[in-house]
Amino acid sequence: MDYQNDLISVSREELINIMQDSMSQRRYRHVLRVEKTAIKLAEMYNIDIEKVSIAALAHDYAKEKSDEEMRDLIISENLELDMLQFGSNIWHGPVGAILMKNEYQLEDEAILEAIKFHTIGSPTMGDIAQIIYVADYIEPRRLHRGVDKARKLAEKDLAATVAYITRQTLKHLVDRKNKIYPKAVETYNAWVVEK
């Protein structure tokens, strides 16, 4: 696939190389699997494949950045400072969106939203964000409890899959007595309770 719409300052091949150079091989292979899964979902739901590809390839761009670098960006870019009470699992989405915007002139709000919210979701996720949220959870090497049900559900109803994944994720965090980022609770309330 060639990118045709000038959504980002690099080609797909260049973006792939950037991701390969910026993360471990294990993480890079995960990113490629997420892209493949996301494109399949995009085709199924008639969602912009180019945007989905860019978001999928870039979703973990900041995942292996140092905590110090991420903290500095959260502060310098005036992101929500309450995020600092949580770890890099929460930080890497919003930080990755900022880095992609600053370093590769990625301006498309739907793609940036997908990168930003791929871990915690958002009450108002658009189609591309939903695809990345789901693809990251169901890519073929994921083995967690409930993933098979999520995969089957993803073939029928994207919004129901978002709700299911959100419920499963919060249940997992509660069962482990982990601190829960408030925005994740907002996602739960919007997708599970209200819908």
Rank of each mutant, 00 (worst) to 15 (best):
D148C: 08
V31I: 14
R141W: 09
Y3S: 04
E50S: 11
I47A: 03
N189L: 14
P123W: 07
H30M: 02
L143N: 13
L57Q: 07
E64V: 06
Q85V: 02
A38W: 03
Y164E: 02
V31F: 12
Q20T: 00
T161W: 04
R141Y: 08
M19A: 04
M19V: 07
A190V: 01
I132Q: 01
A58I: 05
P140W: 11
K65R: 15
Y61R: 09
Y188R: 03
S53F: 01
A163L: 02
A58Q: 00
S66K: 10
D127C: 05
I16P: 05
I128G: 11
A163Y: 01
I165P: 05
M83S: 06
N89P: 00
V95K: 02
A154D: 08
F117L: 10
S88F: 00
E103I: 09
H30C: 10
L143T: 09
L15T: 15
G96V: 07
K63F: 12
N5Y: 10
I54Y: 05
S24L: 09
T37P: 06
K179D: 15
Y164R: 05
G87P: 06
D67V: 01
M1R: 14
Y137F: 14
N102K: 15
V95E: 03
S22V: 01
H59Y: 04
F117Y: 12
I111M: 08
L99F: 06
Y188F: 09
R167A: 07
V192R: 02
K101A: 15
R33I: 13
Q20F: 03
K171Q: 12
E186I: 04
Q20V: 04
K63I: 01
I128V: 15
K149W: 07
I128Y: 03
K36M: 10
L99M: 11
A58W: 01
S122M: 01
H144K: 15
E14T: 11
A38Y: 12
A62P: 03
R29Q: 15
A129Q: 04
E194A: 08
V162S: 00
I18T: 11
T124V: 13
D6V: 02
I180Y: 12
N17V: 10
